[in-house]
Design a protein around this nucleic acid. Structure first.
Lengths: 118, 118
DNA sequence: TAATGAACTTACAAAATTGTAAGCGATTAG
DNA sequence: CTAATCGCTTACAATTTTGTAAGTTCATTA
């Protein structure tokens, strides 16, 4: 939980007021969020599928990041109509509207991320 | 300084290997970096000008973020030809190549950052 | 019905980032 | 010559993020 009285928190808020780009970035901040959005861009997936596609993430962090993405409205969680207690995650319309942003980020990375040549 | 043996560090590296977008994001991570790039997109500026335009940042953090941006090659630091010990910062070609990314981030924020309506 | 697996949660610890306060050397203004 | 300003740096503390390890609940499988 964040302390809403800390300078840190207050600064973040101020920043979002004066820089739209920084606001967008804040919605994506968290080690794995962007990658999760990319994966969910391929279609809806279950918790364990995501865990499988991003092996290094721990269950705790995966749950945490999914919850935050849900809270910011970028993804939604659905319960299967067939089986109870079986969920899947998918991009919400807001999440889909990030498409252009994600494309740009990927494109720049593709050109400049030399490490990815491995 | 980052500990290159920590799981945290190793995970970041792995992630950049499997997601270009995440790599790009990592170049922008740091509370104020993106906003500094936006400001420098308007033209080259001096340390104190940047401090003036982003009041909440402290000198320590400003120096830190500028140094990191320089190290990742997104900006460059020039000494004035007229006066010694007077520097200015500007976007490097690599920094300018971020233009499309920054545009997307700004555009999405403009639409979705309700807080900016203040 | 006991065992298994999915999707988490909890308590804790380590690491990373950000902020506070003060100071310092060079240069410039007075 | 002296004081003020610029562009930092240092030592330290608070905050935030990320990871470890273990446990829980419900539902399906054997």
């Amino acid at each position: 939980m964040r302390k809403t009285t800390s300078t840190n928190y207050i600064n973040a808020t101020k920043l979002h007021g004066l820089c739209d780009a920084a606001y967008t970035l804040s919605q994506l901040s968290g080690r794995w969020k962007l990658t999760l959005l990319v994966k969910l861009g391929e279609g809806s997936k279950r918790f364990s599928e995501l865990k499988g596609e991003v092996p290094a993430i721990t269950e705790r962090i995966l749950a945490l990041q999914l919850k935050e993405l849900e809270k910011s409205g970028l993804i939604s969680k659905q319960e299967s109509t067939l089986k109870k207690k079986q969920y899947s995650y998918e991009l919400s319309p807001l999440g889909k509207s990030m498409d252009q942003v994600i494309q740009s980020l990927s494109a720049w990375g593709k050109i400049n991320n030399l490490q990815a040549e491995l």
